[in-house]
Design a protein around this nucleic acid. Structure first.
Lengths: 136, 136
DNA sequence: CATTATAATAGAATTATTCCAAGATGAGAA
DNA sequence: TTCTCATCTTGGAATAATTCTATTATAATG
């Protein structure tokens, strides 16, 4: 908790109680929550919290590189508080998302016509599968 | 055109004029259109076409494996009428999407804990960059 | 050409997200 | 410690994307 506070103190990031609750919820969270997951959790302690606050906060974190937006699920966005480059696998049935920490960057070479046109900033691999539970 | 028709004839896929227009627009299209892009195009010839028809048709195509949904742009879905597995790069500024036909499947090995839990069905690599135009 | 299952349509409903104006409050300065 | 102000929070409205529903139309088949 102290660590969280010191990470944001004096960085032009105003630490309000709601934000602290969001940061605490996200810290070490590997469940890839949606905006609604965050909203519902924070609401327990701060019943008047609004979606705007949730979206504002995750956007502020994203700008600072503290959080990633995940688009592997076409139905809704998920957020990942682990900003280190990594990849994801989603279960096509239950939509559960898990992290993959293999580094593929060596392998992901691009053809010359693409590198000629684009300055490359990053990559992300989505894997699709069916998890044990959903296979019955 | 004849080729398009014969591909769907007698497959339980009703070929209506609106659907033919959509199929014709998508055939060989590498622009990764959104639902609205398709809607606007079909509307030129069929002014009464509705979004429901566009969504129904792309969903029918997706079910048949004739089209892929692309989620590389967090803002909206794009559709790709090339159903062969391939990858994409998006310009972070103008959101232009281009195809990448390199096959990375050999390189994308997964750790055992993941393959133990998931039956793997596929993968997709997103690349992020800035295109020549947007670099000024 | 008659039948029928499927598709198209308009519009309402839903869902996710963004925007806005007003009041509240953390953070740094005095 | 208190003051000031930039920034945040809030509720609600606005927007945007997508889905749903009931009705009408029509492509496919025999």
């Amino acid at each position: 908790m102290e660590k969280i506070i010191s990470r944001y103190k004096g960085k032009g990031f105003k630490l309000t109680p709601q934000r602290l609750a969001i940061l605490k919820f996200l810290e070490g969270n590997t469940n890839h929550p949606t905006a609604e997951d965050i909203f519902r959790e924070i609401k327990k302690k701060y019943p008047t919290v609004s979606f705007a606050t949730v979206y504002n906060t995750v956007e502020a974190l994203r700008e600072r590189g503290e959080l990633l937006e995940i688009t592997i699920n076409p139905d809704r966005k998920h957020f990942d508080p682990n900003p280190n480059p990594h990849h994801h696998i989603i279960c096509k049935v239950c939509k559960k998302i898990e992290d993959i920490f293999t580094d593929y960057s060596e392998a992901l070479k691009l053809p010359k016509d693409i590198t000629d046109e684009f300055e490359i900033l990053g990559n992300h691999v989505d894997f699709y599968g069916i998890c044990k539970n959903c296979r019955n």
